[in-house]
Simulated assay, not measured.
Amino acid sequence: MLSFLARHVPRTKTAHLNPLHLDAGRSSIEFKLPTDQYLVINRWPPASSTANKAIALRPPLHWHRHQTETFHVLAGAAEFTYDGRTVVKRAGQTMTVPAGVVHTFCNASTTEELAVEFVLEPRSRARDEAFFRNVQSYRDDCRKAGVARSLPQILLFNWVGGVVLALPGPAFLAKPLGIALNFFGGLILGKYILGYRESYAEYYKARV
């Protein structure tokens, strides 16, 4: 193991927090009760605000290997990019992205906060909550430390969460390469060589 080559940042204890405030309070993620239809609520500032220009509140283009993702816009307007198309959904509207479809989303409004809740089906609430808590807490700790996120660590989170970065090129090549990138870059290099973990106690603790 070459863990001494890994790039670690001080980890903030966030596992007990709900909602989880990020980006110096400019955004948040709230985890809903297990009995609720949806898993989380994301809240992001307006797209034109100085705060939002300073933080990249748009997930990279990605797709889910096994899960369909359904979004429900609670407030504001969300711009969804999926399968090469763009659509705006407003408060009260929903958006469903089937497994395997490349997508991302952001706040489409220049004046309103965006609040959107979403869930992944089939459900795996513990795994999905662990994924979102680890990814978002790690992103925020890297922001606070002023360092770039480690790609092997991101790929390891993605491997466990069934999330695959969208690579350029035709889908019949790009998708298998994306899965291979998660496996070799995340599991092999990230976990077994560099010593990164799939989850950190500071970021996630299973609900009793």
Rank of each mutant, 00 (worst) to 15 (best):
T70L: 03
Y82E: 04
A77H: 13
A47L: 14
F80G: 01
F105C: 13
Y138C: 05
W159E: 13
G84M: 03
I55V: 15
F132L: 12
F131K: 03
F80T: 00
R143P: 01
R65F: 11
R123W: 08
P60W: 05
E69M: 02
R127T: 14
P60K: 05
E113V: 12
V163P: 09
T110P: 09
I179P: 00
F183T: 14
L173E: 04
R133Y: 01
K175Y: 09
A99E: 07
G76L: 06
R65H: 11
E129L: 06
I154L: 12
H62W: 04
P46I: 03
T111E: 15
V135Q: 04
A115R: 14
A166G: 07
P122G: 09
W44M: 15
K175S: 14
K89H: 15
N158C: 14
G162L: 00
V88P: 03
P45N: 09
E79P: 02
W44Q: 11
T104E: 04
I41R: 07
Y82M: 10
G146I: 01
E112C: 06
H64D: 02
G185S: 02
F183S: 05
V135K: 01
L177G: 09
I154K: 09
I41E: 10
T68N: 06
Q67W: 03
G100F: 09
P98H: 08
A56H: 15
E69A: 02
F71M: 05
K89E: 10
R58M: 14
G84T: 07
T96R: 04
V97N: 02
V73E: 05
Q67K: 12
E79H: 11
R143N: 13
R123H: 12
Q67F: 02
E121G: 08
H62Q: 08
E113G: 03
L181N: 10
T81W: 13
L61S: 11
L151M: 11
N107G: 03
T68R: 04
L165N: 14
W63C: 07
A56D: 15
A145Q: 07
K53V: 08
I154R: 10
T70R: 08
